[in-house]
Amino acid sequence: MNDKNEEHTMLSTPLTPAFVHGAAEIETTERGLRPHRLPQWARTQFPDPHLLMMEAQPSGVRLELTTAARTVAVVTHPSRLAYRGADRPRGSVDLVVDGVPVASSPLDGGDVVLADLQTGATEFLPGSAHTTTFDGLPAGEKRVEVWLPHNESVELIELRTDEPVAPVEQDRPVWLHHGSSISHGSNASTPTQIWPAVAARLGDVSLRNLGLGGNALVDPFVARTIRDAPADVISVKLGINVVNLDGMRLRTFVPAVHGFLDTIRDGHPTTPLLLVSPIFCGIHEDTPGPGAVDPESLGTDQVRFVATGRSEEQQQGKLTLRVIRDALASVVEHRADDVNLHYLDGTALYGADDAVDHPLPDALHPDTATHRIIGERFAAHAFSGTGPFGRTTARGTARR
């Protein structure tokens, strides 16, 4: 399987929203279709440039189709963020056949927003469309998923195959997950290797990923988005971005989390809901934010992050990860009447011992191998028969 121009006649199928899974809505552009992970009303209400960039990166979004095709090609126009002095790998498009990831192909071309981490200045560099081609698919009718890049936005222009295709209807339990850049997929190599994708595959559920890099900030519009979205099970992973931003104090954080959960419950009163605290992150365990890029790492092979707060500032209510974990556990304890609300300590997914064997390359985000570990542990906890999602999602196992 490769990424090249097709050498024989291909069928062109108009891409419609029916092919797109895992998005809140699909915008029609001059080129084609742009998936969004937040609805239009939320983007209008708070048009923060960084938030808009993150929600437009289609983490967890994929095309799903049935076909006997041996070759599948997707034409996209990518758009990405790059930093001066910091090398960032390109996004990739992944191919999954009958539930098994079989190929990955990096993007080329597209538009670039080049940002300077020191000055904040940006420069726009336009580029061309890109065709991703996968050939050598197995013969016969099969379910094909084309996972879009988790770290670049794309406009979907054209679907080309050597046999007819049909969209797949939603036929698995929907897992809606909200979290930070780690849930978004930061530092994972390809879209099927981010930890929520790993967990969704093991749990045999349909992923709707609301991991928003730098933007898991207990925002009411995200809670409303979750409230209004179809979901069989829901997880919310909060804390690290609040510390990174130094955006709240303990007094405001706890009521905000209660309000966030209250809003979700307005639309999903009995849906299994898992509140997850941050994984281990040494720089912020006992040191408040804000977080920052270590200037000494700029221009090196690996940009790193540092915490700029002081541990003693916890006395004024500043938040660290240890404080966050205690606070979230207490929130669930105080909502004991909600029997479908559960808590998971994030250090069970990645703890201090893991940091010795699998250190965070930039001191903040896990690498691809660690994403796999986190995904496997989450699936074992949440989707097992006795886990918080097990009874709800078990019916999906017989469908595949």
Rank of each mutant, 00 (worst) to 15 (best):
A115I: 10
T368Q: 06
A197R: 04
L298G: 02
P89S: 13
P361S: 12
P220C: 04
D162I: 00
N215V: 06
D98V: 04
V61N: 07
A348S: 10
A82D: 14
A336W: 09
A327W: 09
A216V: 05
S311W: 04
R201I: 10
A86V: 15
N241Y: 03
V100M: 11
T192F: 03
A223L: 05
A115V: 13
G110C: 04
N244A: 15
G317V: 05
P39A: 07
T132V: 14
D357M: 13
D337N: 15
H50G: 14
P47Y: 06
P78K: 10
R62F: 10
L51Y: 05
V100G: 08
F124C: 10
L238C: 03
R251N: 13
T287P: 07
A200V: 10
A56S: 15
L217K: 12
P89Q: 14
E25N: 12
E145D: 14
I234W: 00
V74P: 00
P49F: 08
R70S: 09
A380D: 06
T270L: 14
T192G: 05
E296M: 11
P164F: 00
R251V: 14
V20Y: 08
F253D: 06
A369R: 13
T76G: 09
N151S: 14
E64S: 15
A292C: 09
H77P: 06
P220N: 09
T132R: 01
E30N: 11
V61C: 07
T9N: 14
I240F: 03
S277I: 00
S92I: 09
V146T: 02
R304D: 11
V113S: 12
A398Q: 08
F124L: 13
A199D: 00
V233E: 02
N215E: 13
E27I: 09
F383D: 00
D111I: 04
P366S: 09
G282S: 14
G213D: 07
G60L: 04
H177M: 08
S183L: 03
A369S: 12
R80V: 07
R399C: 03
S181W: 02
V97E: 01
A223G: 05
D294P: 03
T133K: 01
W147A: 15
D367V: 04
T67G: 01
V276S: 01
H178K: 07
H184I: 03
L319H: 01
T386Q: 12
G60D: 11
P138R: 01
D345P: 00
R395G: 08
S180G: 06
L65K: 02
I283L: 13
V72W: 00
E158H: 08
I182D: 06
G213F: 01
T28Q: 15
R400I: 11
A115C: 14
H177D: 02
T308S: 04
G385V: 01
P359Y: 11
G91H: 03
T308A: 02
P101G: 06
G351D: 05
V303C: 10
L275F: 08
H177N: 09
G136M: 00
L65P: 00
I324L: 04
A327E: 09
V339W: 11
G60Q: 07
L273Y: 07
D354K: 02
